[in-house]
């Protein structure tokens, strides 16, 4: 187990370096000069431009810049945005909001998605199954920006059930609508995935054995069936947590949530290189760690999988 974790951690290093390098190169080799942009329409004083360039290290070769960035990272320094604010500060504001929203959405898809999936998987072809199937198809095919705008308009503006935008991100009741909108797409996937694996495993020999030896239905479904059926679902959910945090660009924009997605979007639009690289670096870490956790969960779920 320990050796497995160590090996996986070692394997993460090239991926981490590769991904940060990729995003770094993309952000900094783009045309457009962030230093010149600071001056707006005024003519830039060449000496000041040169000084600013030097301060941000933009006069060095790209690889050197990347090296400086990574070595700063290991000392907890995410650099400074072009507005002069440390990127770490920016992220300290944005991440708690997004983590709250993402965990809320994650909880919804976990409970509702797996619940609906198990129910429909056990009763395939019944009325509920058909309804849920159609519901998931609709959800998957309507893009999130349409869904978000409609939900905001109908539930927030017309019916006035919730506040249309998030005014206070500490207030969980204001986060309900954005969290549901954020969760819906993955919820549909989780439901369909759970339904398929439950229906498949229901025909497995070990289920017949469990029933034949007289175990109560609750135990057959709750322990024997669930443990095996959850493996693909856990795989999906693991990669999804990272997606929920980074992929909330649209949802956070619609509902005015001051989170990571919004920060990232603004940073991309305004060519705020240091902020983009910083946020993506953290998101990559989240993604890598959650895929490690998924691998470890396999062993918990499937007794046949053991990591030596």
């Amino acid at each position: 187990m320990g050796r497995f974790v160590a090996r996986r951690l070692l394997q993460m290093i090239p991926v981490f370096i590769g991904t940060t390098l990729l995003i770094f190169l993309m952000v900094y080799s783009l045309p457009g000069d962030p230093v010149k942009a600071m001056f707006g329409s005024k003519a830039a004083d060449p000496a000041t431009v040169a000084k600013l360039r030097h301060d941000y290290g933009l006069d060095k070769p790209l690889i050197q810049q990347y090296w400086d960035y990574i070595s700063g990272l290991f000392q907890g320094d995410f650099g400074q945005s072009f507005t002069g604010r440390p990127v770490a500060d920016l992220m300290a504001d944005a991440f708690p909001v997004t983590i709250r929203l993402a965990l809320f959405a994650f909880a919804i898809e976990l409970v509702v998605g797996i619940g609906l999936g198990v129910l429909t998987g056990l009763r395939r072809g019944k009325f509920l199954d058909q309804v849920v199937l159609i519901f998931t198809l609709i959800v998957v095919s309507i893009p999130v920006f349409v869904l978000g705008n409609l939900a905001q308009f109908v539930i927030g503006v017309k019916w006035k059930l919730v506040t249309p935008t998030v005014r206070d991100s500490q207030d969980l009741s204001q986060l309900i609508l954005p969290a549901v909108v954020l969760a819906l797409l993955s919820l549909a996937y989780v439901t369909r995935l759970t339904r398929t694996t439950v229906a498949e495993n229901l025909r497995a020999d070990y289920i017949r054995t469990a029933v034949a030896k007289g175990l109560p239905r609750r135990r057959v479904v709750g322990v024997h069936l669930m443990r095996n059926s959850l493996i693909p679902v856990v795989t999906f959910l693991g990669t999804d947590l990272g997606m929920l945090m980074g992929g909330a660009i649209v949802t956070e924009g619609i509902f005015n949530v001051p989170g990571v997605g919004n920060t990232l979007y603004q940073a991309v639009i305004t060519s705020e290189g240091p902020t983009v690289v910083g946020v993506v670096t953290v998101l990559v870490l989240v993604y890598l760690v959650s895929s490690l956790v998924v691998d470890l969960l396999y062993a918990v779920l499937d007794p046949r999988i053991r990591y030596a």
């Binding site: 991926v15 590769g18 990729l22 993309m26 952000v27 980074g246 990232l264 060519s271 993604y287 890598l288």
Partner: peptide
Amino acid sequence: SRLTDVFFGIPLLLGGLVLLQAFT
């Protein structure tokens, strides 16, 4: 495979955003 992992670390929408920002 590592190259695939590297690209997998960046979601489609985010990668598209950053890359397309380069094109006016």
